[in-house]
Design a protein around this nucleic acid. Structure first.
Lengths: 202, 202
DNA sequence: GTTAAACCGTACTAGTAGGTACGTTTAAAG
DNA sequence: CTTTAAACGTACCTACTAGTACGGTTTAAC
């Protein structure tokens, strides 16, 4: 990975990804404060100066991480919601994905990092919670129009669904509790969606 | 507050409280990383060496903060649950208190601080979430025995209640969103408890 | 070829904060 | 009255890290 001199054509994107990936690894291993720009550079086979050229500063680099993770999250959620089977299965799939993502180490580390900087927090809120929120709200609104749900507003419906799915798992795991197993997660997703329907089906 | 020399008898407790209070103020104002021991000492009219004598190190001081806040929280929750009116009113009172506490600046700042240290996180988890959890679970179990609820386990019942009450408010406010108004909070508490009963009443 | 951009590696700057040491002061203890 | 514990204030040490500067190197571009 360590190349010296001007990069060959077409190599830039891969190199940038290597930096992002290295930053994730360091972040998960050490946390935001103890992750240094030098460590990231070394792991990526890049130089510190390059990191600063590309991302301006440490916050800039980590805001790029947030956006990167948010993009893959959004993609996965959109895929889950495009399932054309019944709404129950679709929502269970969504719930399962949401739990898996939000309880994954990269997401947790990113959330912890965001707590230490108002700017990072704002970016995470915008690209994370609010971005997925509006997508799911659209979906719920469609369900309501089709008569599957009776809801007062898409926002409050999504908040309810979110609460039923996540309960206090995220905050507990953020504080160091070990996350539930895959099996428990999928059981929980199913139960949460069923509760949601029993509350929102009118 | 700034006394020099050996303290007069009976002054120690007040002085210790002054340090705790100063630490809270600094924490809320600047966040954990940017709060220095010197700042706290100055605000409390104490010396840095005294802080280290009393609390060993920075983490020790903040773990004292966590325990202090947890104690007052537990007290308030116990009071709310001792109400001998009907269960619905009691739980709404509890829900309202929980929301107010968890969305208050001191609690938020403490949670953000705990995210940066596994040790602090463990303490917060134990004295915060788990301590209140077991109290409320006991209460819910009593309700179940009295026939007010049909629940599979107190743990899962409390988790459900918690999810209905808090939804994603805590994580959103932790990330910088402005918390809902008092009015919204109490409306929300009522709605959450009603949903809980409609799900858990069998 | 020659130029110039992008990059690596190393060294350097500067600021900061946790933690310690010490001399001084006050009041409790006896 | 003397001794001693507890505390203040200041100065100090140590370690670390974000960010900058620069010289050397490789490749694209022309």
């Amino acid at each position: 990975m360590a190349r010296r001199g001007r990069p060959k054509a077409g190599e830039e994107a891969a190199h940038r990804d290597a930096v992002i990936s290295a930053a994730f690894d360091e972040l998960v291993a050490k946390g935001y404060e103890k992750t240094t720009m030098l460590d990231i550079a070394k792991r990526a086979g890049a130089s510190k100066e390059t990191l600063y050229n590309w991302f301006t500063n440490k916050e800039g680099l980590f805001s790029a991480l947030i956006k990167y993770q948010a993009d893959t999250t959004i993609t996965r959620i959109k895929v889950a919601l495009q399932d054309n089977t019944d709404p129950r299965t679709t929502l269970i799939d969504f719930a399962h994905n949401l739990l898996r993502i939000l309880l994954s180490e990269p997401s947790l580390s990113l959330n912890r990092a965001a707590m230490t900087s108002v700017d990072l927090a704002a970016i995470l809120l915008k690209h994370g919670r609010h971005a997925t929120g509006s997508i799911v709200e659209n979906y719920l609104e469609r369900l309501a129009e089709q008569g599957y749900l009776k809801i007062s507003s898409p926002e409050s419906a999504f908040q309810l669904l979110y609460g039923l799915i996540l309960q206090d798992w995220q905050i507990r795991v953020l504080l160091g509790e070990t996350p539930p197993s895959e099996d428990l997660l999928s059981q929980h997703a199913e139960r949460a969606v069923d509760l949601f329907f029993s509350l929102a089906k009118g």
